[in-house]
Design a protein around this nucleic acid. Structure first.
Lengths: 139, 139
DNA sequence: CTGCAACTTGAAGTTAGCTTGAGGTCAACA
DNA sequence: TGTTGACCTCAAGCTAACTTCAAGTTGCAG
């Protein structure tokens, strides 16, 4: 395990140093030592950051992402939680596939009004049950 | 086209009435009339809202979503933009697939440290180039 | 005709996720 | 040995996306 300087981590991960410091206050990452005042990181931090980045793009809050990282004693619960998160991601993927198709359709369909195009109508019919769930489950 | 009351739209779409009013100020939706003071919506608003919801879950800002809805004169540019958005969504999907696999792996893999598990290492190796792009392209 | 629940507006407040600024410290190079 | 530039801390500031609040209005049930 070699140590990397924060500026290097920033460069490699695409996160700004200020974001890395912020993540540290949230307990999402830790620096393993200091060189003077400067944070040095174990290179596994890059995996963590990649997961954080992907987690964010999956719509998880930093708090949720943090929970996933807690490898606590009761790891059976933890495994369950991870699978649940994976299920959520897959659900999300299904929704995005509909969106991609809808976008391409709207781009290509020559119909005046999409609300009257049967192809579009059919696509949208699949969407609501997927699309409204997030909001309900919040808070 | 039948008109629906805002409370009904809220119920059907999963968005709160306050959010609907907010979207109206941003020009994302319009109410087609009023009953007294109360907003009434054309039922195509539900499609729009489903698209908004999906767009958000794809990580687009309300402003970006609004742009997509602008069906302006130069529709060739518009088509191009829509396809670009679709490309972004598909890129996003690829990233989420890696995340889902990573989550399931971490849940099931018995290795002490994931950073030493070759399967995990291999997955993560695919991720960075996908995961860091969003941040760079912002602003 | 009278309530009153459910809407209205505009302004202010909230939360997440960072970034920025002021003032300080330090490693490394000339 | 001194200077400099990149880091440090802590507090305050910022943006997006809403929500909440206070004060007013209105459709409709009784």
């Amino acid at each position: 395990m070699k140590s990397i300087d924060i500026s290097e981590v920033a460069k490699l991960s695409g996160f700004k140093a200020s974001a890395l410091r912020y993540y540290e206050t949230l307990g999402l990452i830790q620096s393993d030592s200091r060189k003077g005042l400067r944070r040095q990181y174990d290179d596994t931090v890059l995996d963590r950051l990649a997961l954080i980045s992907m987690g964010q793009s999956a719509g998880f809050s930093l708090e949720e992402i943090g929970e996933v990282f807690q490898k606590d004693e009761h790891f059976e619960i933890d495994r369950q939680r991870l699978h649940t998160k994976a299920d959520e991601v897959e659900q999300h993927i299904r929704q995005l596939r509909i969106l991609a198709r809808a976008l391409r359709h709207v781009a290509d369909c020559t119909a005046q009004s999409h609300s009257e195009c049967p192809t579009f109508r059919k696509m949208m019919a699949e969407a609501p049950k997927l699309a409204t769930r997030q909001k309900q489950s919040e808070h």
